[in-house]
Simulated assay, not measured.
Amino acid sequence: MNAALDKKTFRSDLLAWYRASARALPWRAKPSLYKTVVSEFMLQQTQVKTALPYFERWIRELPGFDALATAPEARVLKLWEGLGYYSRARNLHKLALAITARPEPPRAPAAWLELPGVGPYTAAAITSISFGEPVACVDGNVVRILARLTADGTVFRDSSSAAKYFTPIANALVNKAAPGDHNQAMMELGATICTRQNPSCAICPVRSSCAGARTLSPEQFPRLAAKKTEEQSVCRIWFLSTKRDAVLLHRASPSARRLAGIFELPSPADIELDEKDLTTKNAKLVAEQKRSITRYRITEKFLALTPGAPLRRRIDARIKTSAGMLQWIALSDLDKITLSGPHRRIVQKHFA
């Protein structure tokens, strides 16, 4: 801990600012354990502005643990469609089943860590906000604040090692009189003031405590080793039935690490096509998009396939032997299934 840091002043300044300036977010209005849990799961790897409409729809459709626990998984995934990282939705569903099977929810962070999808950050957030447990949340926002607050120049291998390093400092700073508000204030500060680029130091409520601000270059903290990225290129096929009233989709295996049970437009490999099958005679490039998933930078090309009779027969044979992984979905039913968010947007923009 920086010897010059006055913990009492920092806590006081931070809390006063938060209570006067916090954003009006739906999980903060009439807060409940359920709202806190749902919001924390949604905010794992998702920005607030993206999560907002999903959260509001979710609470309307599944207003409590009981409603979520009794909902079919297909409905849960459909409500989550577009947020990505669908394991979060499945884990949230499992967590609701676990909570409703208990006489009362657990209160200690350690007990929450035993529940599906709950890591140290989520356990700290839930228990500090809902039960007043004096434990700090440490995510990328909090790491950034603490690295700047202390002007710590340590170079970290990754964000996980940085979070582990700063956790003792974060816990020493927790306002034990209001740990939930303290943690939310730290999140708020990182999201709105102490941002990764161009932090608003001039209006920061804790600037007087910040060694990084005194260096006049707070952006240099924290110091994380450069991530190695991997470029990938993928083709996707838009292929209609003979009557042009259904589209061929690929459904990921229930045991898949990503997108288990979720529909996507198929790749050439899914339907056993090779380069000669995708000549300009058969396939037309309709759209291209770039997106990132963890360390991967993915370029997707979307081709509209209009094959001749021999190729169509080959594809039909492949569908029959795919054990349900390839399915014809009626165009009128597209809105009823759970389609990966990026593919849903492509379909709506280019193929609807």
Rank of each mutant, 00 (worst) to 15 (best):
M1L: 08
D13V: 00
L14T: 09
Y18S: 14
S21W: 07
R23I: 02
R23A: 14
K30H: 11
T36V: 14
V38Y: 03
V38A: 04
E40P: 03
M42W: 03
A51C: 13
A51F: 05
P53A: 04
E56P: 10
E56V: 09
I59S: 05
R60A: 15
G64S: 12
R75L: 13
Y86N: 11
S87Y: 04
R88F: 01
A98R: 01
E104K: 11
A110T: 04
V118R: 00
A123E: 01
I129G: 09
S130I: 06
S130W: 05
E133N: 02
V135Q: 08
A136K: 02
C137D: 14
V138G: 02
I145Y: 05
R148N: 11
F166W: 02
F166N: 00
F166S: 02
A170S: 05
A172M: 04
N175I: 00
P199N: 01
A202V: 07
C204T: 06
P205K: 11
P205R: 10
R207E: 06
L224G: 08
K228I: 06
V234G: 03
C235M: 01
K243L: 14
S255R: 06
G261T: 06
P266D: 11
E272G: 03
L278N: 07
K281Y: 04
A283S: 08
Q289A: 13
R291H: 12
S292R: 13
K301M: 10
R313I: 03
R314L: 05
R314G: 12
D316T: 15
K320Q: 15
G324E: 14
Q327M: 11
D333Q: 15
D333E: 12
K349F: 04
A352C: 05
